[in-house]
Write a protein that binds this DNA or RNA. Structure first.
Length: 270
DNA sequence: AGTGTGTCCTGTGTGC
DNA sequence: TGCACACAGGACACAC
């Protein structure tokens, strides 16, 4: 999409998780995508109009690419296992590369929005968002400050995007296991000892390793080229209920916190 | 203000 | 085979 222009936007329904913004297609058509970016779990396309398209995949969203030009025919073939009845937004790109970019999302938990590019940092999606975990804004001190005084369980606190951006259920479970911290422990008590320093390091480590492995393909995640991630083979606890801990051989437990599954080793995590 | 609960939606896997 | 049910990578609205 970078450098290409949006020739046409086809909306196949008036909303995703939320209503699409006013004049959605009109504000995108004829604009050039100057730069693609990411903040937390959001994708951002900076447009020549001075506005930016903000996209979130939710749980099941995906973009597929069909190359319509002759540049690299067949490289970006449409994923076979993608039911076209959930194709909700179609972007026809022209210019440096002609392609059809389709947003498909069975559960429709994803959403899109538009904001002025110079106001991105203060728009509702990013105003309160915490630092990028692999960026300069994240440090052991920053993590401590964000967790300080919180009575919520550390598991719930780490899923809160205001603490640190981009952590989801898998990597929170994995980071807590690596750091030897019980998911039930109050966030404030993690700051009190040296646990938060260890946690800081493990958050970064697990994210780096997962990115290196191409992400985690549970059922349907794939890269935009269609390739699968491999990090799921290296989960220590996530989706391993009743299996044995790799470290102490005791049984991995599943509990529910804030309506989400938490996997942990009650012996290794204190 | 911070925290816990329910909700949005479809597909898949499991047990009966 | 058919059916009911639980659960899924996330964020938000709401009640306290």
């Amino acid at each position: 999409m970078q450098g290409a222009s949006i020739a046409c936007v086809e909306l196949r329904r008036p909303d995703l998780r939320f209503p699409l913004p006013e004049n959605f297609a009109g504000r995108l058509e004829k604009q050039t995508v100057e730069r693609l970016d990411r903040r937390g779990k959001y994708l951002i396309a900076h447009l020549s109009s001075g506005e930016s398209l903000i996209m979130h995949l939710g749980m099941s969203g995906r973009f597929t690419i069909e190359e319509t030009g002759q540049l690299r025919p067949g490289v970006f073939a449409r994923a076979q296992d993608c039911n076209p009845k959930h194709d909700h937004v179609v972007f026809d790109m022209e210019g440096v590369r002609a392609a059809r970019i389709t947003y498909n999302d069975p559960r429709r938990f994803g959403f899109m929005d538009i904001a002025r590019s110079e106001e991105l940092e203060t728009c509702r999606h990013f105003k309160e968002m915490g630092p990028e975990p692999l960026g300069n804004g994240f440090s052991a001190a920053a993590l401590k400050a964000a967790l300080k005084g919180k009575s919520a369980p550390i598991k719930t606190a780490l899923l809160d995007q205001r603490v640190v951006a981009g952590l989801g259920n898998i990597y929170v479970c994995e980071a807590l296991y690596r750091a030897g911290i019980s998911p039930r422990r109050k966030a404030a008590s993690v700051v009190a000892g040296k646990r938060s320093d260890r946690l800081y390091g493990e958050i970064i480590a697990v994210l780096r390793e997962a990115i290196e492995a191409g992400g985690s393909s549970l059922r349907d995640f794939a890269s935009v080229e269609g390739g699968l991630g491999y990090f799921q083979h290296r989960f220590d606890v996530y989706d391993r209920e009743a299996e044995n801990c790799r470290r102490c051989d005791k049984v991995i437990m599943r509990i529910v916190q804030g309506g989400r599954s938490t996997f942990f080793c009650p012996s290794c995590q204190r």
